[in-house]
Protein backbone atom coordinates (compact mmCIF):
# COMPACT_ATOMS: atom_id res chain seq x y z
CA UNK A 1 0.00 0.00 0.00
CA UNK A 2 1.32 3.40 -0.89
CA UNK A 3 1.35 5.46 2.33
CA UNK A 4 0.88 8.58 0.20
CA UNK A 5 -2.38 7.20 -1.15
CA UNK A 6 -4.18 5.05 1.45
CA UNK A 7 -7.39 3.29 0.31
CA UNK A 8 -9.69 5.69 2.13
CA UNK A 9 -8.01 8.93 1.07
CA UNK A 10 -10.01 11.52 -0.78
CA UNK A 11 -9.41 11.48 -4.52
CA UNK A 12 -10.59 14.21 -6.91
CA UNK A 13 -11.10 12.87 -10.41
CA UNK A 14 -12.89 15.63 -12.29
CA UNK A 15 -14.37 19.11 -12.33
CA UNK A 16 -17.82 19.27 -13.97
CA UNK A 17 -20.21 22.01 -15.01
CA UNK A 18 -23.92 21.57 -15.57
CA UNK A 19 -26.27 24.21 -16.98
CA UNK A 20 -29.46 22.17 -16.99
CA UNK A 21 -31.02 23.43 -13.75
CA UNK A 22 -33.04 26.42 -12.63
CA UNK A 23 -33.28 27.61 -9.07
CA UNK A 24 -36.62 28.29 -7.40
CA UNK A 25 -37.02 29.91 -4.00
CA UNK A 26 -40.21 30.12 -2.00
CA UNK A 27 -39.95 33.29 0.05
CA UNK A 28 -41.39 33.83 3.49
CA UNK A 29 -42.72 30.35 4.09
CA UNK A 30 -44.37 29.84 7.49
CA UNK A 31 -41.98 27.82 9.65
CA UNK A 32 -44.48 25.22 10.87
CA UNK A 33 -44.59 21.41 10.55
CA UNK A 34 -46.05 20.08 7.32
CA UNK A 35 -45.29 22.99 5.04
CA UNK A 36 -42.25 21.40 3.36
CA UNK A 37 -44.24 18.21 2.85
CA UNK A 38 -46.97 20.20 1.16
CA UNK A 39 -44.54 22.00 -1.17
CA UNK A 40 -42.72 18.89 -2.33
CA UNK A 41 -45.89 16.83 -2.62
CA UNK A 42 -47.29 19.46 -4.96
CA UNK A 43 -44.11 19.33 -7.04
CA UNK A 44 -44.09 15.53 -7.11
CA UNK A 45 -47.73 15.47 -8.17
CA UNK A 46 -46.74 17.49 -11.23
CA UNK A 47 -43.83 15.20 -11.98
CA UNK A 48 -41.18 17.69 -10.93
CA UNK A 49 -38.03 16.25 -9.38
CA UNK A 50 -35.96 18.52 -7.17
CA UNK A 51 -32.38 18.65 -5.97
CA UNK A 52 -30.31 20.68 -3.54
CA UNK A 53 -33.12 21.61 -1.18
CA UNK A 54 -31.98 24.40 1.13
CA UNK A 55 -34.00 25.82 4.00
CA UNK A 56 -32.47 28.86 5.59
CA UNK A 57 -32.51 29.69 9.26
CA UNK A 58 -35.85 30.57 10.78
CA UNK A 59 -36.36 34.30 11.19
CA UNK A 60 -39.39 35.36 13.15
CA UNK A 61 -41.41 32.29 12.23
CA UNK A 62 -40.73 32.69 8.52
CA UNK A 63 -38.18 30.91 6.35
CA UNK A 64 -37.11 30.61 2.71
CA UNK A 65 -36.95 27.25 0.91
CA UNK A 66 -34.83 27.00 -2.24
CA UNK A 67 -34.16 24.09 -4.60
CA UNK A 68 -33.14 23.21 -8.13
CA UNK A 69 -35.35 21.78 -10.88
CA UNK A 70 -34.53 20.85 -14.47
CA UNK A 71 -35.14 23.80 -16.77
CA UNK A 72 -37.61 21.83 -18.87
CA UNK A 73 -39.74 21.40 -15.72
CA UNK A 74 -39.86 25.12 -14.95
CA UNK A 75 -43.45 25.65 -16.07
CA UNK A 76 -44.77 22.76 -13.99
CA UNK A 77 -42.60 23.73 -11.02
CA UNK A 78 -43.74 27.34 -11.09
CA UNK A 79 -47.38 26.35 -11.32
CA UNK A 80 -47.05 23.96 -8.37
CA UNK A 81 -45.24 26.59 -6.30
CA UNK A 82 -47.75 29.26 -7.19
CA UNK A 83 -50.63 27.15 -5.89
CA UNK A 84 -48.82 26.22 -2.69
CA UNK A 85 -47.59 29.74 -1.97
CA UNK A 86 -51.15 30.99 -2.21
CA UNK A 87 -52.45 28.24 0.05
CA UNK A 88 -49.85 28.67 2.79
CA UNK A 89 -49.63 32.49 2.65
CA UNK A 90 -45.96 32.60 1.74
CA UNK A 91 -44.51 35.91 0.57
CA UNK A 92 -43.64 35.03 -3.04
CA UNK A 93 -41.74 32.88 -5.54
CA UNK A 94 -38.42 33.79 -7.15
CA UNK A 95 -36.50 31.89 -9.81
CA UNK A 96 -33.31 32.03 -11.81
CA UNK A 97 -32.51 30.09 -14.96
CA UNK A 98 -29.06 31.66 -15.44
CA UNK A 99 -27.29 29.42 -12.97
CA UNK A 100 -24.88 26.52 -13.27
CA UNK A 101 -23.55 23.77 -11.07
CA UNK A 102 -19.80 23.48 -10.72
CA UNK A 103 -18.66 20.28 -9.01
CA UNK A 104 -15.53 18.68 -7.70
CA UNK A 105 -16.09 14.96 -8.35
CA UNK A 106 -14.21 12.09 -6.77
CA UNK A 107 -14.21 9.56 -3.96
CA UNK A 108 -14.18 9.87 -0.20
CA UNK A 109 -14.34 13.63 -0.46
CA UNK A 110 -15.89 13.95 2.97
CA UNK A 111 -12.66 12.56 4.45
CA UNK A 112 -10.72 15.61 3.30
CA UNK A 113 -11.85 17.99 5.98
CA UNK A 114 -10.20 21.03 4.46
CA UNK A 115 -11.46 20.40 0.91
CA UNK A 116 -14.59 22.59 1.14
CA UNK A 117 -12.54 25.45 2.56
CA UNK A 118 -9.98 25.13 -0.23
CA UNK A 119 -12.67 24.96 -2.90
CA UNK A 120 -14.58 27.96 -1.61
CA UNK A 121 -11.37 29.94 -1.14
CA UNK A 122 -10.35 29.26 -4.73
CA UNK A 123 -13.71 30.55 -5.96
CA UNK A 124 -13.57 33.55 -3.64
CA UNK A 125 -10.10 34.49 -4.94
CA UNK A 126 -11.61 34.50 -8.43
CA UNK A 127 -14.44 36.71 -7.07
CA UNK A 128 -17.05 34.09 -7.91
CA UNK A 129 -20.09 34.18 -5.67
CA UNK A 130 -21.56 30.89 -4.45
CA UNK A 131 -25.37 30.79 -4.34
CA UNK A 132 -25.95 27.26 -3.02
CA UNK A 133 -23.75 24.40 -1.81
CA UNK A 134 -24.27 20.68 -1.41
CA UNK A 135 -21.71 18.02 -0.61
CA UNK A 136 -21.39 14.28 -0.10
CA UNK A 137 -18.66 11.69 -0.42
CA UNK A 138 -18.68 11.81 -4.21
CA UNK A 139 -18.92 15.49 -5.02
CA UNK A 140 -18.96 19.01 -3.71
CA UNK A 141 -21.25 21.15 -5.84
CA UNK A 142 -21.61 24.91 -5.87
CA UNK A 143 -24.33 26.78 -7.71
CA UNK A 144 -22.94 29.93 -9.33
CA UNK A 145 -24.11 32.42 -11.96
CA UNK A 146 -24.11 30.78 -15.38
CA UNK A 147 -21.78 33.39 -16.83
CA UNK A 148 -19.23 32.62 -14.09
CA UNK A 149 -19.32 28.84 -14.39
CA UNK A 150 -16.54 28.34 -16.93
CA UNK A 151 -14.22 30.62 -14.99
CA UNK A 152 -15.07 28.70 -11.82
CA UNK A 153 -14.32 25.38 -13.49
CA UNK A 154 -10.99 26.68 -14.79
CA UNK A 155 -9.99 27.85 -11.33
CA UNK A 156 -10.90 24.52 -9.77
CA UNK A 157 -9.14 22.48 -12.47
CA UNK A 158 -6.00 24.52 -11.98
CA UNK A 159 -6.14 24.07 -8.22
CA UNK A 160 -7.24 20.44 -7.84
CA UNK A 161 -6.48 18.39 -10.99
Amino acid sequence: MNPQNPPCAARISDVCTDYSSARITLLGVPDVPGVAARIFTALANRGVGVEMIVQNNMRGGITDIGFLVMKECLNNAVEACRQVVKAIDAQGVSFNTEIARVSLVGENLSKAIDLPAKMFSALAEAKINIEMIVSNSYDITCVVAANAAEAAAEVLRARFL
Partner: peptide, 11 residues
Amino acid sequence: GPGRVASEMCR
Protein backbone atom coordinates in the same frame (compact mmCIF):
# COMPACT_ATOMS: atom_id res chain seq x y z
CA GLY B 1 -46.47 28.53 -18.98
CA PRO B 2 -44.11 31.37 -18.08
CA GLY B 3 -40.91 29.32 -18.54
CA ARG B 4 -39.80 30.71 -21.89
CA VAL B 5 -40.39 34.33 -20.99
CA ALA B 6 -38.71 33.77 -17.63
CA SER B 7 -35.64 32.18 -19.23
CA GLU B 8 -35.35 34.94 -21.86
CA MET B 9 -35.48 37.63 -19.19
CA CYS B 10 -32.77 35.89 -17.16
CA ARG B 11 -30.62 35.42 -20.27
